[in-house]
Amino acid sequence: MNATTRTLWRDGLWTNNPGLVQLLGLCPLLAVTGTAINGLGLGLATLAVLAASNVLVSLLRHQVAAELRIPVFVLIIATLVTVVDRILAAFFYDLWTTLGIFIPLIVTNCTLLARAEAFASRRPVIDALHDGLAQGLGFLLVLVVLGSLRELIGQGSLLAGADQLFGPAAAGLTLQLFPEQHGLLLAILPPGAFIGLGLLVALRQHLHTRRPAPRSAPSTEPAGTSAPGPETA
């Protein structure tokens, strides 16, 4: 993995995470994360659309006139979202019913158009693919973590509804850690989504700012001269 690819993955997963740093796609992020499986389902759909749209935009970047690029990008994204929506309706009907309007609303996720315009339309296909996968995975992880926390605190369970995504054999994957009636109702209501996301953003910012400053190279000055201090972050 070269330096450019490492930077793309670091940006998508941490430095420029769509959900925790750019704060894009908050409508589905807050609306569907009542459970981990709902978050995982929407995250996988978004990742697939983001990676595919980045690749197609990169492939067509020299064929699309500058004044038409935004309508063309929106058409590409809308077509891919329609394909994903039909696949979910055909093979994952229960999950598709649960996610409802938020699958078609992937079209309005600003992350997709932003990456198409700012990155994929200016870079080679392989870089565009890595960027789409990294940004999509970063968004997916936020969906799953937030959904898991809300489900655990609100219902006392993890992976409820796993059979909707993985088939009937996965029904036994649900973990009920304590009775649902002992859960905190606030966690599964809309205010709980805002509070949970705010805490995740704060935690990410805290961890990011606590990273140690890079150490300076050992001094090669003669003895008796003061060496420069460490760089500040």
Rank of each mutant, 00 (worst) to 15 (best):
G156S: 13
S157C: 05
L158T: 05
L159T: 06
G161D: 09
G161Y: 03
G161C: 04
A162Y: 05
D163C: 03
L165T: 13
L165Y: 13
L165G: 14
F166L: 13
G167H: 10
P168R: 03
A171D: 06
A171E: 15
G172V: 13
G172W: 02
G172A: 07
T174K: 08
L175C: 10
L177S: 08
L177I: 10
P179M: 03
P179E: 06
P179V: 04
H182T: 07
H182F: 15
G183K: 03
G183H: 04
G183R: 01
L186F: 04
L186N: 04
L186D: 04
A187P: 05
A187W: 02
L189M: 15
L189F: 01
L189R: 08
P190V: 01
P190N: 01
P190M: 03
G192Y: 02
G192P: 06
A193T: 13
A193F: 06
F194H: 07
F194A: 15
I195M: 09
I195V: 15
I195A: 15
I195R: 02
I195G: 12
G196D: 10
L199D: 00
L200K: 10
L200E: 05
V201A: 15
V201W: 05
A202Y: 10
L203E: 02
R204S: 14
L207F: 15
H208S: 15
H208F: 08
H208P: 00
T209V: 14
R210N: 13
A213V: 04
A213D: 11
P214Q: 14
P214N: 14
S216N: 14
A217S: 11
A217I: 04
P218H: 09
S219R: 10
T220L: 13
E221D: 07
E221F: 02
E221K: 00
E221M: 07
A223S: 12
A223F: 03
G224M: 01
T225N: 01
T225G: 00
S226Q: 09
S226P: 04
A227D: 07
G229L: 00
P230D: 15
P230W: 00
P230I: 04
E231M: 12
E231Q: 08
E231A: 08
T232K: 13
